[in-house]
Design a protein around this nucleic acid. Structure first.
Lengths: 257, 257
DNA sequence: TTATTGTGTTTCATTAAATGAAATAAGGTT
DNA sequence: AACCTTATTTCATTTAATGAAACACAATAA
């Protein structure tokens, strides 16, 4: 393991091998896979066992991740940690698009804003970090709906939306049949547009943020005034947002809240 | 940090300082708390940050647990890891009581058996690891009900029990009012008794297993034939079970599924 | 029953990382 | 501008990590 330098790196390199797909490793096979000696790997595993981060199955002799990691995992302040990882990329997207951009997650059947970067030239957007909005009438929310569920049936059966879709503007999609078709379209094209559906004068474009397991984790959007968002520039915005989402995906690994 | 020997131990000793109560630490205060130099602590934190296990708040400069730990925490096979920690103590309890003993958790509004140790002299108990039973008519279940909720109102409002309590024997508590009083009593005395409530001829005694945050995590019980469980020995069994639960608590730390 | 094989565990001489005092860099406050 | 505090880096010294080899143990084959 000499290529890994510090023991901290080696520790996490070992932990990284324990996955959902392969949750158990023997000393010998781990040593071979890591191109290290059995005694070195044995000592790392044994020390992690003492710390509770690993346990050894008494029957098979194989090692698995221990309760201490579950405990530590529960102490992670997910939003802060997530924002720390994603904020630099959000800043870059804002610089490229020069509009206000957001990242949101699905929480309590609503759009929950976790981060926001204003553009100096951007419109003052009525949103704040920590606040929630309805799902059906924003690009962030429609993206989350389209990619988080296998179909509208699941959305209805889980009561994600209410029986009635509240109308905020004349453009709000207030009919379930229309929304279902809209989500099918969003899923196909890979992005959503909010055409003044929540607030007159405001247009937003949103894309999904996936993790390394292709699970949707959040959504990313840019918002601007209706008179500045031109259809011919839309494709450009979508590309910038998708690039940002891709970079975020590289930074969050298999994270899924 | 010389008293800690291996770097794996030091790594987890550092991680252990990041708690729900104090989720953020600066390099300087952590070094002081651990009686180590700032440069040593700085390098550990910095290396963990590279591995994703830590992040540094760009504003305050303080460190917090990173998404990688959340990810690893999600990969822990909780039941295996939990059983690994608790099984040796269950074996000891079985040796002391010479009856079949179980550990169970509350899952899907039922008693879920996660471990079992038969006593050679013990009765053959109709239970198997991985199976579930109703909550209201076993000592394991009644303990879980008594300590997992703040009162019967919460149990009813969360629909933990059905509207009707199924009767299995003449001794089954099938009336909600009676069960509520029973749970109040169990909570006061710290243990539960199943007096042939689920199976004629079978008596069980159960106690709660708490974690280090005084949260109930599971229940622990001994089961035996009605003609062998004598009331005068009951207190002795309760003491043995409680001692076992205490040792388990020491082994699971703040674990809470 | 004995021999063989393979894995977990320990040993120890050698190698490489960890250590911490001191210095430097950076940012906030006066 | 000066001062203070913390983060970050340096480097001589100290200590842990390394891995080949040996040993312990258990399962399997002969």
């Amino acid at each position: 393991m000499k290529s890994l330098k510090s023991s901290v790196n080696k520790t996490f390199a070992i932990l990284e091998h324990f996955t959902i797909e392969k949750p158990e490793w023997s000393v010998t096979e781990l040593a071979k896979t890591m191109d290290s000696s059995k005694s070195t790997v044995y000592r790392f595993l044994s020390d992690m066992e003492k710390s509770g981060a690993m346990y050894q199955d008494p029957d098979s002799g194989k090692y698995g991740l221990g309760l201490k990691l579950f405990e530590l995992g529960n102490r992670v302040r997910i939003q802060s940690a997530f924002v720390d990882r994603t904020h630099p990329e959000l800043v870059k997207v804002a610089e490229n698009i020069t509009e206000t951009v957001h990242i949101a997650i699905l929480r309590n059947k609503q759009v929950y804003y976790v981060d926001k970067v204003k553009s100096p030239q951007g419109l003052t957007i009525n949103s704040s970090i920590g606040s929630s909005k309805p799902l059906h009438c924003s690009s962030l929310g429609k993206v989350l709906l389209a990619f988080s569920f296998s179909g509208y049936q699941e959305i209805r059966s889980k009561n994600i939306l209410g029986p009635d879709l509240e109308r905020f503007t004349d453009n709000t999609i207030a009919d379930h049949f229309d929304l279902e078709n809209e989500l099918i379209k969003i899923r196909a094209q890979g992005y959503a547009i909010d055409r003044e559906e929540y607030e007159i004068g405001l247009i937003c474009v949103g894309v999904p943020i996936f993790n390394q397991r292709n699970e949707i984790v959040a959504s990313l959007s840019a918002a601007g005034p209706a008179n500045r968002f031109k259809i011919n520039e839309l494709k450009n915005y979508v590309e910038i947002l998708k690039s940002g989402a891709d970079r975020i995906r590289g930074k969050i690994g298999e994270f899924k809240p």
